[in-house]
Design a protein around this nucleic acid. Structure first.
Lengths: 136, 136
DNA sequence: AATAAATCCTATAAACTTTATAGGAATTAG
DNA sequence: CTAATTCCTATAAAGTTTATAGGATTTATT
């Protein structure tokens, strides 16, 4: 399961993609009310997305958020990794968040293989789906 | 991520499949020590697997656990659903644990589609992989 | 009948994660 | 100077995970 936070992030980005031709930045307050996301929680999410250069922000009056790269170049894998961490179902099979399984000798690990397959299939779907494509 | 509990369940079942030709049932204590699983925690797991007819058990001296159906007919989906619940990444996309997303009108949900695709791919892998196949 | 050895069951708890909320600081436009 | 926005830190409530404790129950054997 992805977290609610991650769902909020995807919803927020999709909302922004839907409105990407506006001349002004988008307020967190607008996204929060239109998408039903708690405002302060959403602020934290948007800040994380800005920290990894998915978004850019402007403070002060008439501030708000914009994409830092076109939404058809932002893939779900990137967003999900930022918000939720690993996509793989086992730590020892994660590409971006690898961690060894403690008491498990990996060379002979019985369950590793199938979860590598799942990871590959999942990444090939989520890594080829852009935020923009969710709008269309 | 699957839980440690689920990993323990898969490891335990794999261990049992590896030893499926024994004439006597297998003790939880043996599995616990050989696989490095906390004994009491493992007992709870094995009981759950017995409750759903994956295993059968005998109490008392010379008791222990056996498969209730051949391990080549036990698929990872079944085990994972018993222990961890839904396999899908979104509640509204789960086949066995469906739950509606609260403030999300599903007909127009932007993110639902891609997670259905992920679910289908994941199920086709995990649903065709048996416990027995992990041994081979 | 007594004993040993196994599963079964319930309650509890420590640690961690998730999902926020509160209160303001900093910045910017007008 | 004011209003409106993002930014930041601390806190907390609730839920989940990962066990542990202590025995109850069952069964085979002696």
């Amino acid at each position: 399961m992805i977290s609610k936070k991650c769902k909020y992030a995807l919803k927020a980005l999709t909302f922004m993609a839907k409105n990407k031709d506006r001349s002004t930045p988008i307020f967190s307050s607008e996204i929060a009310s239109k998408e039903g996301i708690p405002k302060k929680f959403l602020e934290a999410i948007l800040r994380e997305l800005r920290n990894v250069q998915i978004l850019q922000s402007r403070r002060g009056k008439n501030g708000g958020y914009r994409f830092n790269k076109p939404p058809n170049e932002i893939y779900l894998t990137e967003v999900m990794r930022v918000i939720d961490g690993p996509i793989a179902l086992l730590p020892c099979v994660s590409l971006n968040y690898y961690a060894p399984c403690e008491a498990c000798e990996e060379n002979v690990c019985s369950i590793k293989g199938v979860f590598e397959t799942v990871r590959n299939e999942t990444l090939s779907i989520l890594g080829n789906t852009s935020i923009q494509s969710l709008v269309n």
